[in-house]
């Protein structure tokens, strides 16, 4: 009884902290976007971030999608063979990749790369007084640092996810045609027939939301870091953990509430 009460208190405190952090992040995002609508704008910073978030994530996202798409096709084949439904491999693979695995895996992989990097860079700027220097040089850190990162990640993740989806389907195709005895042309035709516009839309919406979340988690944790080098480490860890949890939570919400009908 005592123990249960204490556990409840701990859980309650955790939830409250989580809510406070969410509120802080929302406010932070609103500040950045609110200021970003008025100049000065920093197109060079935006392009730089788009390259960092998008282009340099291509290898890791591509490999993840390839391996997972291939493994998925194999599993669908095994599962399907238990009730003579092996022929569902192309349809189920494409739907699972486009609606779920493509965006989620790309979101998580990019969060691992980018949220941590953003948090570490901005936290280091805090520690070394570069953020203070920006202000004294009459440059708004929200416009100069935060907004380009949020916008870049939100724009670039959908592009990245289109690539991830295509490569994921390719992974399934490779396994299906080399090991599972599918005819290549038939596989592709079936894939195309079962893919609906709604699936793609869901994929892209998720990708944009995940991009925003992962950049926000990185920037927020970096920006408010305190306590020197140890603080930089904490900010980096928190950024990745928060990004992962929020991406998975947002995925659930979008899947069930927006595209669950």
């Amino acid at each position: 009884m005592r123990l249960a009460a204490r556990a409840l208190v701990t859980l309650g405190a955790f939830v409250l902290q989580g809510l406070a952090a969410l509120g802080g992040m929302a406010l932070f995002a609103a500040t950045a976007l609110g200021r970003a609508v008025r100049p000065p704008w920093y197109p060079a910073r935006l392009l730089e971030q788009m390259a960092l978030v998008g282009w340099f994530s291509l290898p890791v996202v591509g490999l993840t999608a390839l391996f997972t798409g291939a493994a998925l096709a194999q599993q669908v084949f095994v599962g399907g063979s238990r009730f003579n439904a092996e022929s569902t491999v192309p349809a189920i693979t494409v739907i699972a990749v486009v609606r779920e695995l493509g965006p989620v895996l790309a979101g998580l992989m990019v969060a691992g790369r980018v949220s941590s990097a953003m948090a570490a860079e901005i936290a280091t700027m805090r520690v070394t007084e570069q953020l203070d220097a920006l202000v004294t040089l009459r440059t708004d850190p929200f416009r100069y640092l935060i907004a380009p990162r949020l916008v870049a990640a939100t724009l670039v993740l959908p592009l990245l996810v289109i690539v991830a989806n295509a490569i994921g389907v390719l992974g399934g195709y490779l396994i299906a045609t080399t090991r599972l005895g599918f005819n290549g042309a038939t596989y592709l035709v079936t894939t195309a027939r079962y893919l609906e516009w709604e699936d793609v839309r869901s994929s892209l919406v998720k990708a944009a939301v995940f991009g925003f979340i992962l950049a926000l988690a990185g920037c927020y944790n970096g920006f408010r870091s305190t306590g020197g080098a140890a603080g930089v480490g904490r900010a980096t860890t928190n950024a990745v953990v928060v990004a992962f949890i929020l991406i998975l939570l947002a995925n659930l919400v979008i899947t069930v509430l927006v595209f669950g009908q």
Binding site: P40, E121, E129, D132, A133, L134, L137, R138, T139, Y144
Partner: peptide, 22 residues
Amino acid sequence: SALFDSLPVWRNVTFALTSGRS
């Protein structure tokens, strides 16, 4: 010093003149 390590020295020096725009 608090120099911006993502920018070359010359962009650091003239930062105030362009408010950081390239």
